[in-house]
Design a protein around this nucleic acid. Sequence first.
DNA 1: AAACAATAGTTGACCAGTTAGCTGTTGTCA
DNA 2: TGACAACAGCTAACTGGTCAACTATTGTTT
Lengths: 159, 159
Amino acid sequence: MSSPATSQLQDEIRQRVPFSSIEQEALLGILHTADVIRRRTAKVLEPFGITPQQYNVLRILRGAGCAGLPTLDIAERMIEQAPGITRMIDRLEAKKLVSRERGCDDRRQVVCRISDAGQELLNRADEPLRVQSASGVGNATESDLAALVKVLDSIRAAS
Amino acid sequence: MSSPATSQLQDEIRQRVPFSSIEQEALLGILHTADVIRRRTAKVLEPFGITPQQYNVLRILRGAGCAGLPTLDIAERMIEQAPGITRMIDRLEAKKLVSRERGCDDRRQVVCRISDAGQELLNRADEPLRVQSASGVGNATESDLAALVKVLDSIRAAS
DNA sequence: AAACAATAGTTGACCAGTTAGCTGTTGTCA
DNA sequence: TGACAACAGCTAACTGGTCAACTATTGTTT
């Protein structure tokens, strides 16, 4: 227990509106909400033994089909940098969910492909994720969400 | 080299992975936008030699004043777990921006305080951050942002 | 052909989030 | 008083994002 003086001060801080503007409130709200969404998604995927980022990679590779996709093409489709992709695919390969092989036409490339096990895992995970995202928007209406998406686009397009 | 404009990235994702619902589009939009905001904030803080999370800790400690704050109380005010806080304060202490001492009334606690150097750094960083967040919401109006905040609250409150 | 730049990917090092498990301290209760 | 649960904080180990530097291959230029 802290001294009474500091606990009162702490309560003031806890209750004090930490936003100096509606802009800051909106931006911090986005960060906070993104954390909540990430945690929920991780929880849904946990029984499958993969993380949200690993799920994203698998989904991208499923979209690429049996032709596979070079490593950096995967990074392009995510918000991520190349080094992170390399190591994420290291882990997916260790779990036998993807395979890699040096490209034959351009020997600099490393073509990644989803494995049968990866396909199957993905198919099992799709439905729980869809259900979760459907219930995860609270009581927001469709037009609420459409407006949300529009404002988010505007924020991403800003300087 | 393709331009890294965020709206293009969104377009790309939209093409490869069609959204199965407006709900998923909204949730993914929040995640993408949060990443963009995080990156922008990191860039503003980079000249000051601290990360956004470290800035958050310093701001919390500034709010606590000279009384300081126990380690876990800081974690409570962030979205974070205790171990992360411990190491973050390790780094802030190494930079001489905060100080720590074992509590004298409850010897389990470790009270953290912002240093003068930390105060000064914070004061210098406040204005650039405020400017950035003001310009970082694009052309969204105040009522747009108010609606955004409301929908975000609803999403966080959802299951 | 030799030199050069560009490209694809990897590695190392750092910061950060998460979980599990640990030490030391405090309060409680038999 | 001694046993014990609860608490504050820490370490270890894993996943992950970021930057810088590196190797190997390819294309270009002279």
